[in-house]
Design a protein around this nucleic acid. Structure first.
Lengths: 241, 241
DNA sequence: ATGTTTATTATGTCTACACATAAGGAGTCG
DNA sequence: CGACTCCTTATGTGTAGACATAATAAACAT
């Protein structure tokens, strides 16, 4: 039985749940536990690995969280048929995303107006008739090149402070996360055709495919903000594991 | 102190870690624990909630996994300034994605060839010169309407069985997940302009923005497969929490 | 044969305790 | 004053044991 503990630290005499996890994942991806296999029970496995059931439970639970296993009471633990079923994207604030690449971050406010919400927005955010909204257009630069165009609407009824806020220095996103909590978020990824506004500020021609992220946020059943983030040419959102 | 346990089940006399979690999240998003707050230690909190430190630890760890808290030994537990907005997308097999909406699923093989890998693919997948690959074009229909166009390359050196497989009935994705394990996956989301192939099979005009998912899979440092999934007009990938 | 109840069993989770480990902070020494 | 060491402390994780719960399977009744 080679390779029973592959991340073994020499000092440790006890087996950690991480070591157990590694071995379980290895047995699934490279070893005898192919898709659909029913694993032995926790007690039996704990005995085999020389750990307590608590530790084995933790290991199995975390591997399950990774998407490899399917656990049901009484039914037991089974290897998922299609192991990779979830992609997890960390969506940092733009600033950190840019600074992490070593580039210099710069923010600019393009336009700022308070208007009555147009019909499509009222529907989308569930606003009352003639509700006032703050509408912002902002740019985020990486090393002087436009990286992301932020088109944001803020519900002034739910967040009257937004009316007095000056967004010329601090971006609305950073202001919002520091100001208002949220209870529900909806995120969509989509491909859109570049419109005149995007063409004016990003490196796009009219009609070019643009990768957009749309995020709507609620707090206590009231819509707070809706934002569309249009990205520069060729942008990809990537995750690896 | 209203609302101390909001998901309380009447039967239970003991407080579960889920109830503790709910209260912690509530205190962060609606209550006194604003961004940057340093929480009391585990022992103190456990006492306040009337649970063991183990349970409190579990609750705090899970809330931390949700992206609300930042935990460091000795430093303590602190509320994140900007909660990590992480988008977790379940990426089911197309079949289930379509059938879940109640639509009828149909699969069709468009083309199937064995060729020498073109240069860009050799670079992308890290193949040897003149390496043979299986190239497939497949369509996935929802209620008779083309939903997704699958453009797949399979490394025949790593997976010779693919050469003899007939993909006319069973899609390559379903065949692969049942056949080959994997050790590493890279997923990208991007917006592309519709090319002639997409126009021919999906409801797009030439140059239209198309939402694409690209997925590359390795097994033991050898590239197994690279696939691009082009979606029908107006497709969005959405997650809510 | 079919529907209902009951027993069994694997996972889910709580408790109490112990030791490990990282990191902040105090104290010490040059 | 700065660099180093050591102590303290909050979280990280392991153990053993107990009860809870969901879901299957077997036994039973219709």
């Amino acid at each position: 039985m080679p390779d029973t503990a592959r991340t073994e630290t020499p000092k440790a005499e006890t087996t950690t749940f991480r070591e157990v996890m590694a071995e379980i994942v290895a047995r699934i991806t490279e070893g005898p536990w192919g898709p659909g296999t029913l694993l032995p029970g926790e007690v039996e496995l704990a005995e085999e690995f020389g750990v307590s059931r608590t530790t084995m439970n933790r290991a199995l639970r975390e591997v399950s969280d990774l998407g490899f296993l399917d656990r049901k009471r009484k039914a037991g633990t089974r290897v998922r048929m299609a192991p990779i079923r979830q992609a997890r994207f960390e969506m940092p604030v733009v600033r950190s995303e840019i600074e992490k690449t070593g580039a210099e971050y710069r923010y600019a406010l393009v336009s700022h107006e308070v208007v009555v919400a147009p019909d499509w927005l009222r529907l989308r955010m569930g606003l009352k008739a003639r509700a006032k909204v703050v509408h912002l257009l902002c740019l985020h630069f990486a090393d002087g090149v436009a990286f992301q165009l932020e088109d944001r609407w803020i519900n002034a009824s739910a967040l009257p402070q937004a009316l007095e806020q000056d967004f010329s220095e601090v971006g609305p996103n950073e202001w919002l996360v520091a100001t208002v909590p949220f209870s529900e978020v909806e995120i969509s990824f989509l491909a859109a055709a570049a419109d005149a506004v995007m063409v004016a500020h990003l490196d796009h021609a009219l009609g070019d495919p643009v990768f957009c992220v749309e995020r709507a946020t609620w707090w206590q059943n009231a819509a707070v903000t809706l934002v569309t983030l249009a990205h520069r040419r060729g942008y990809r959102m990537t995750t690896r594991y």
